[in-house]
Each structure stands twice: as C-alpha cells, then as structure tokens.
C-alpha cells in the first residue's frame, strides 16, 4: 500500500469511527461498539505477548480482573475515580510484575500452565474470598467518571471515551511494533538463544513486555467495569482468558489489525449467539477447533485458504489441509 492510499484509509477509518454514534443511532449497537473497542484494547495487550513475544498467557483475565476489582472496591469504599483508577493501574502493574517473575521461570508450555494457575488464583480470590470481593455477588460500580467535566453516563459519550483510549492504545502499539524494542522482543520470540549471544537480556525484555501488556490489560479492565458498572468473578474465569486469546488468534497473531478484527468477530458473535441460544461456551469451543483444524493462521487468511482447500476437495485433488506453522518459542538461554 503506498503512502497516500494508506493515509486515506486511516483517515476514512477515523471518520467512520468518530461518527459512528450518528449513523448507528440505536444505543444498543453503540454499546456493542464500545464493547468491541474495550476488548480490542485487551486483545492488543495480549497480542504483545502471544504475537510478538511468543509467550501464550492463559491468565490475562486475572490481570484484567485485578484492575477492575481494585478500582471497583476502592470506589465502593468511597474513593474518587482518579484515586481508584490510579491505584488500580499501579496494583495491576505490580501484579503483572509478579506474574512475569513467576511465569518466566519457564517458556512454552510451562509459561502457559503457570499463567493459567495464576489466573485461577485471582479467580479463587474473587469467587471464594467473599468478605473482600463480595464473592459471586460481585461489586457494583455506581457512577462513571466525568473526565474534564464531560459525563460518560450515556452510550455515545462512553463510546467516545472508549474510542480515545482505543486510539491511544493502537497508536502506542503501532509505534511499539516498529521500534527497536519491538524488534528485540520479536527476536527473543524467534531465536532466544541468539539474542542472548548478541547481547540482549532476554529475560528482562520479556519481563518488560509482560508489564507493558499488563498495563493495557489494566486499562481495558477499567474501561470494562465502567462500561458494565459491575464486576463479578466471571471476569477472571478461564473462559474470559480463552475468549481474549481467541480474539488474538482468530484475527491473526503478530499483526496490528488482527486483534481488532478478532475483537469484532468475538464480541459480535457472542452478542448474536447469546441472543438466540445459551450455548456460548459450545460455540466458543467449536470455533477453537475449527480454527485449529482449518485456519491455523487466523480467520481472515484462513477463510481464503479454506475456500481454496474445499475447492481442491471438490475437484478430487485430495490435497491435505495446510500444515500449521510451529509456534513453540525458542528454548530459554
């Protein structure tokens, strides 16, 4: 894509996003758009690890929930929005650092298992430590903040707030991906041992990436509780971690637009499916299996491939399904 066309596309997308409430109209749909934006931030954050660091985390819902719960509980205790949100981000950063130190004892499967277990700890606290977290009843968030005196109470204003956060996150990621640090991180994904021999501190690079990812996860967690005005243990469940992982993978990992496409796909699908049947988990599971079996590189490139593949099958070529690319990160140095 040449420069001018690219700017034109970005401009058109910005105009579409900025005018969305007017051409969508119905506040139900505006709310879905807000949901997509906040989950896109979450998916972008996880993609830093899954896509660029080659570290698959199944505990990210835990970090998301830590931000949400910290803010919700502090608000409930009577603190202001600014104090509660700042504290929530600080706590999330600390939790990310702890996650990182523990999970980086291993890479590959080990990393995944440890993050899963850490996510379950958060779930255990949210669900079982009822005297602190209210258990299954969750915590209500009675008011939304009013940054610069602008109330975010109605759907369009909340959408714009989400849009601003999303654009910030997206811009940060876009710069990050092209930056030397982004290149270092990808290097540790592809050849950890070589990176070490070239003078890179692989452990520290991964650590920083996890904390960076944790920061945006926390931001999206805050958006979520303000959007929902409620937080419950479900937010920290393994299903939630799996959903956001699905967003990252369905859109295609290690791309900027992939997680956003994934967020759209998953949020829309979840809303549509939930409107008709109560079988979201079943659908979620089926999507995983279909993606793995037929579209290992993500839904968008995968659909193209699936079409071609079925064409071959119809024509009796009997060509096997495309093999999946290896995705195991390099051995630790």
């Amino acid at each position: 894509m040449n420069g001018r066309l690219r700017y034109a596309t970005i401009g058109a997308a910005l105009v579409l996003l900025a005018t969305l409430p007017w051409w969508v109209g119905n506040s139900y749909y505006i709310n879905i758009a807000s949901q997509i934006l906040l989950f896109a931030v979450f998916a972008l954050a996880l993609n830093v690890l899954v896509g660029y660091a080659g570290l698959v985390s199944l505990g990210h819902a835990g970090l998301f929930a830590i931000a949400g719960y910290t803010a919700a509980l502090l608000l409930q205790a009577g603190y202001g929005h600014f104090a509660a949100d700042t504290a929530a981000i600080v706590v999330t950063l600390a939790a990310s650092a702890i996650f990182a130190v523990l999970a980086l004892r291993s890479t590959g499967i080990g990393f995944l298992m440890i993050t899963l277990a850490l996510g379950q700890i958060v779930w255990g606290i949210a669900y079982r430590w009822a005297s602190l977290t209210g258990g299954d009843n969750g915590v209500n968030v009675t008011t939304r903040p009013s940054p610069f005196g602008i109330s975010l109470a109605n759907a369009p204003s909340f959408y714009f707030a989400s849009l601003v956060v999303f654009l910030l996150a997206f811009a940060t990621m876009a710069v990050f991906v092209r930056s030397p640090f982004g290149a270092s991180l990808r290097g540790t994904r592809d050849q950890a041992r070589r990176m070490n021999a070239l003078g890179y501190n692989v452990w520290l690079i991964r650590f920083v990436a996890i904390v960076f990812s944790g920061f945006w996860t926390g931001i999206s967690g805050l958006l979520f509780i303000y959007y929902n005005q409620f937080v419950s243990p479900q937010v920290s469940a393994l299903t939630a971690s799996a959903e956001v992982l699905l967003m990252v993978i369905s859109g295609g990992t290690a791309t900027l637009l992939g997680p956003i496409a994934g967020a759209i796909i998953v949020v829309v699908m979840k809303n549509v499916v939930s409107a008709y049947v109560e079988r979201w988990n079943l659908v979620l599971g089926l999507i995983f299996i279909v993606i793995i079996t037929f579209m290992p590189d993500g839904l968008v490139p995968g659909t193209v491939r699936l079409c071609r593949w079925s064409w071959h099958v119809i024509r009796w070529n009997g060509k096997p399904a495309p093999a999946m690319e290896k995705h195991s990160p390099g051995a630790p140095p």
Partner: peptide
C-alpha cells in the same frame, strides 16, 4: 535486519519503544 539486530544488541537504543528502527 538480521545484521541490524546484531548491531542493536550492543546499542542502548535496543530498549527504546518509541523510535522507528527503520529510521536509524
């Protein structure tokens, strides 16, 4: 890019998340 990574490894620039690597 392979060789650039070798050079970057010894440069303090490797920690920079804001600059553009291709613009060095």
């Amino acid at each position: 890019r392979n060789v650039t990574l070798a050079l970057l490894g010894l440069s303090s620039l490797r920690w920079s998340p804001f600059t553009d690597l291709d613009g060095q």
